[in-house]
Design a protein around this nucleic acid. Structure first.
Length: 800
RNA sequence: GGGCUCGUGGUCUAGCGGCUAUGACAUCACCCUUACAAGGUGAGAGUCGUCGGUUCAAAUCCGACCGGGCCCACCA
């Protein structure tokens, strides 16, 4: 069919996306004999609409999926939605203006469900509008179906992995100092802590030496912790305090005796140079207490209030307690002065913004310290694109110092599947395969001690860290626990695509947990992407107001320019993309050429009879040999997740070689209606066949990126689905024409005509072309209307 | 504070020891040419972040510094 439309519009595109949703091409066939290429797509949080960073990275994943499908692989490209954890709860609390700590658990869970129902449709729709084709758009149990991490099925698998790890003796419960978020009332992992510069104040308070009554001024930022002070230290080189070595000091306000020692942890130029060690103001304190084998005095409760250890500060919140003790000490002269510190690095909960407190809690841990060497080996062996990102993972593994705390005291997450036997105090586990909620379900079974009375078991109320769920996504999508045969046949997962900022969380935890469960490196390849930043190179954030809504781009330009932009802007695995509407818009113009040249080529068709009667000329072989180079570059590039260089090459080829030179030269042969230059029927047919074959290959090569337009053209011209085609292979054609000679000669003619203010149709008096173009003599003479054409070393053009 | 990473015409990008540094977008000039004015042809625009070093030769290797980003960290 001939293409008539002036241009490819976003309306045509939307119609195609709707067609695709019904197209079996993208569905996943569980019983396939093909090699499976599985993509562990990052399940996005859908508590807010997807932003431009999501859109861009999923578009690149769609490139990968489309390319792999064409190479003959069965592509597993499922859509997952992450619906567990604190972000969901916080969004729900905000949106419905409720406080979960004041609700029943069922009510809290209800609000989360409500939020998720209201927001998920919008996100899913945005993906579709980008032309991203997942295997499925509805939730289900089949491989490739959309999944949600809060579904019964997913949670059952999460629970099963816990049961397995518990039985492997890899999980233990321990009373340890944890990072406590007093606002959310939960333990948080190191990965969920950020450090903020917050203003602080040194409070110079007065300690007294026990026997001499000498006053010692100590600077502290946490005066409310005086009650838990267990020692005072100064630097061994600090002559101001050397005489205090081994003395006993009396704390102010609480009048408790504490030892005074020299220790290198104290720095001479910080504060007053002498410091009190409390349990626990910060991580220094924790390490110090462990080192000195000091008994901690925990004075802060889980809810961020002081307890009875703090004397009359008991019951007050930390800030209130600080205020009270400061006022009181000021009045009694125990506090000399307050000076602001330079910005004070404060550990803050990433999710809630509350300052982290360090308290002791009973939590479950997954062993990871024992596996650091193994993890390092895995980090060194998994294939990472770009290889430079490997270092992020290695650095993180090196810095791990505690086991992974996997339990949380929140509501909307996977429930820990166990009960405690009231009789013997041991834990009993749920059976694998079914999602259980021990906090509202009774245990039916028998404890090792013989207890089988359902009322004699206490259901666990804690839930899992959200990374405990997300870290099994590659297992889940490959049917782990649910379809063991499929899983065994098709694991490990082919690709993990993800952002560099979650290497230490999602990537690390997945490699760790899935190794502990399967003893495999769970991924063949890991593709780590950088970020979409604003025009000036700054990170986009809602608070800065520099975010770009992908809907705006899609509504204004459609998906095609955006997809092209994702490819041509650079390699996202190596660099950030600066997002500008202007550049996205102009990216769209780059492929107008493909549309127009397709319109031209579609004017020519051959009958079956004519197809047999072709005699390629040298220029036909030349364009074929150039396309061979493109095939090679695209194949190598795409395989290594480089869509940038091949796309730029293909687009440039279409315009600078194919349209400008090949099409210009053969169009007279294709029309073959110039009485002065007649071609034979088989020469004419060769032109048409080469035009059509070349375009066909070009469309195939660019199909992963320019998915919709190429689909449209291909269907019109060749009546097939380009995305279901076999990836093109080289024809190994050779040509005597030197590309550079051809391009330079044509350019010289065009320039000469322009300089002589001639029309392109006007004749050229005489010209000398490079020797390698001798085989195209007839055609270049006709193309440029050259009256006298000779060949030599140098290009000479005499226009008039 | 430490580690990693990036820094190439106005903007983005290729190159990662060796011809006059690749290409795009934007800018300017001219041009309707049997696909294309949402186009074509051509032009201008860069001391390859800065400063040193290695080399016959450096955008490319090394060091220091500056700037962006990510990650980590015990400053009372």
């Amino acid at each position: 069919m001939q293409i008539k439309e002036k241009s490819f519009t976003k309306e045509m595109e939307l119609a195609i996306f709707e067609e695709w949703k019904k197209d079996d091409t993208y569905k996943f066939n569980e019983n396939t004999e093909k090699k499976v290429y599985s993509i562990d797509t990052p399940p996005p949080y859908i508590n807010s609409p997807i932003h431009i960073g999501h859109a861009s990275t999923y578009i690149i994943m769609d490139f990968i999926a489309r390319y792999r499908r064409m190479t003959g692989q069965e592509v597993l490209f499922p859509l997952g939605l992450d619906q567990n954890g604190l972000p969901i709860e916080i969004s729900a609390e905000k949106k419905y203006k409720v406080d979960f700590t004041k609700l029943t658990r069922d009510e809290a869970v209800g609000y989360c469900r409500k939020l998720l129902d209201e927001t998920s449709a919008e996100s899913i729709n945005s993906f579709a509008k980008c032309g991203i084709m997942f295997n499925s758009w509805s939730e289900g149990e089949k491989i490739g179906d959309m999944y949600q991490t809060d579904s019964k099925s997913y949670r059952a698998v999460t629970q099963a992995t816990f049961i397995d790890l518990w039985n492997k003796n890899l999980i233990y419960e321990a009373n340890k100092v944890v990072n406590w978020d007093p606002k959310l009332q939960t333990t948080v992992s190191d990965a969920e802590i950020i450090y903020e510069d917050r203003p602080g104040f040194f409070h110079d308070i007065v300690f007294k030496v026990k026997d001499t009554n000498e006053e010692v001024i100590i600077g502290t930022t946490r005066p409310e912790l005086i009650c838990s002070c267990a020692m005072v230290i100064f630097n061994p080189n600090d002559e101001r305090y050397l005489h205090l070595e081994g003395k006993t000091l009396i704390t102010p306000y609480f009048n408790k005796e504490v030892p005074c020692k020299s220790h290198t942890a104290a720095e001479m130029d910080k504060g007053t140079g002498i410091m009190m060690m409390c349990s626990y103001g910060d991580l220094t304190d924790i390490r110090f207490f462990m080192e000195q084998k000091l008994e901690p005095i925990i004075a802060i409760n889980k809810d961020g209030t002081m307890n009875e250890k703090a004397g009359d500060l008991s019951g007050l919140k930390i800030i209130e307690a600080r205020k009270k003790i400061v006022e009181s000490m000021q009045n009694s002269g125990l506090l000399k002065k307050i000076t602001p510190t330079s910005a004070h690095r404060t550990p803050v909960s990433e999710r809630s913004g509350a300052a982290i407190e360090f308290i002791e809690m009973q939590e479950f841990y997954l062993k990871q310290l024992d596996y650091k060497d193994k993890m390092m080996e895995i980090a060194n062996n998994v294939t990472i694109y770009s290889p430079k990102s490997r270092q992020i993972l290695i650095d993180w593994i090196n810095s791990i110092s505690i086991d992974w705390p996997i339990s949380r005291r929140r509501y909307y997450a996977t429930d820990i599947p166990m009960w405690k036997c009231k009789k013997c105090g041991n834990y009993v586990l749920a059976e694998k395969g079914k999602y259980v909620q021990p906090w509202k379900e009774k245990f039916s079974g028998t404890c090792e001690c013989g207890n089988s009375d359902p009322n004699e078991f206490v259901g666990e109320t804690r839930v899992f860290d959200t990374w405990f769920d997300s870290s099994i996504s590659p297992l889940y999508i490959l049917g782990y626990e649910r379809k063991p045969e499929f899983f065994n046949k098709h694991s490990p997962c082919s690709l993990r695509p993800q952002g560099k900022e979650i290497v230490r969380t999602w990537l690390y935890f997945t490699l760790l947990k899935d190794y502990l469960l399967t003893e495999k490196i769970i991924f063949d390849d890991v593709w780590i992407h950088h970020h979409i930043v604003d025009e000036k190179g700054y990170k986009m954030s809602k608070s800065k107001g520099n975010t770009i809504d992908p809907q705006k781009i899609l509504n204004q330009y459609g998906a095609s320019p955006f997809r092209i932009w994702c490819a041509i802007e650079g390699n996202l695995d190596r660099t950030d993309f600066r997002c500008s509407m202007e550049r996205i818009q102009s990216a769209g113009k780059l492929i107008d050429k493909l549309w127009n040249v397709s319109k031209f080529v579609s004017m020519f068709e051959l009958t079956q009879e004519q197809e047999k009667n072709v005699e390629p000329m040298e220029i036909d072989k030349w364009v074929q040999s150039e396309i061979d180079k493109l095939i090679e570059e695209a194949t190598i590039g795409y395989k290594e997740y480089d869509f940038h260089n091949p796309t730029v090459r293909i687009i440039n080829f279409i315009r600078d070689e194919f349209a400008s030179h090949y099409v210009e030269i053969v169009k007279r042969r294709a029309y073959n209606n110039d009485p002065n230059t007649k071609f034979t029927e088989s020469e004419r047919n060769a032109a048409v066949k080469t035009l059509r074959d070349s375009l066909k290959t070009i469309l195939e090569l660019l199909a992963p990126v320019n998915a919709a337009m190429n689909y449209y053209i291909y269907k019109e011209m060749f009546n097939e689905n380009v995305h279901a085609q076999k990836w093109p292979t080289k024809t190994n054609t050779t040509s005597t024409i030197v590309t550079k000679d051809l391009v330079e000669f044509n350019s010289a003619i065009w320039k000469a005509k322009k300089d002589a203010t001639l029309s392109l149709k006007d004749p050229v008096k005489k010209a000398t072309a490079p020797e390698s173009l001798k085989s195209v003599e007839k055609e270049i003479k006709a193309t440029h209307n050259i009256l006298k054409l000779t060949f030599g070393k140098e290009i000479i053009v005499e226009a008039k």
